[in-house]
Write a protein that binds this DNA or RNA. Structure first.
Length: 164
DNA sequence: CTGGGTGAGAGAA
DNA sequence: TTCTCTCACCCAG
């Protein structure tokens, strides 16, 4: 698979693409930790920097951050359990600027008593931004957590609410 | 504020 | 395989 890295308003953004589709979108402050995480998630893959597909995905993600809603166009190579994919699929149906609670999301996938499990699935989401796990917040106004830092979550929501 | 009920995943043995 | 621990939750006291 090949990948590309670019600087964005949220810090460094890494996109990795396999022969099946987009398989990782990571955020971070420095290049080395990003690469380490990519390698940790795909230990057996050969990682090729600066590939065409990776850079193409990067461009799309940056356009998305700028306000364009062009997801679903490129194939996704999601690796996860059935339950996780169910959660991620539901996440992608949340509109830009909209937020729901973990309990609500759990109810939507038919598991109303499993908000904690849903949170766990969100934490494992390999495709930041494409799968908008940042649009899930706690029920009583609590922001909840975010794998790449609550600060990034807050800024993502701010920027989505304002510029569409 | 605290405590307990949750479902699913990761890791040990 | 099972057992145990860990949660980005949520509601009742």
């Amino acid at each position: 698979m090949d990948y590309g890295i670019a600087e964005t308003s949220l810090g460094l953004l890494l996109a990795a693409v396999s022969d099946k589709g987009l398989c990782a979108v990571l955020l971070g402050d420095a290049e080395a930790p990003l690469l380490a995480e990519l390698k940790r998630r795909f230990p057996r893959e050969a990682l090729v920097p600066g590939g065409t597909a990776g850079n193409q995905a990067l461009e799309m993600l940056i356009a998305m951050l700028a306000g364009r809603e062009c997801q679903e166009v490129l194939p996704l190579d999601e690796r996860g359990t059935l339950f996780q994919r169910r959660v991620w699929e539901e996440l992608r149906r949340i509109a830009r600027g909209e937020t729901i609670s973990y309990g609500e999301l759990a109810a939507r996938i038919g598991r109303p008593r499993a908000p904690r499990a849903v949170a766990g699935a969100c934490a494992q989401n390999p495709l930041a931004i494409v799968t908008p796990c940042h649009r899930v917040v706690g029920k009583n106004g609590r922001l909840g957590g975010y794998y790449w830092g609550v600060e990034r979550k807050r800024r993502l929501l701010e920027q989505e609410g304002g510029s569409c």
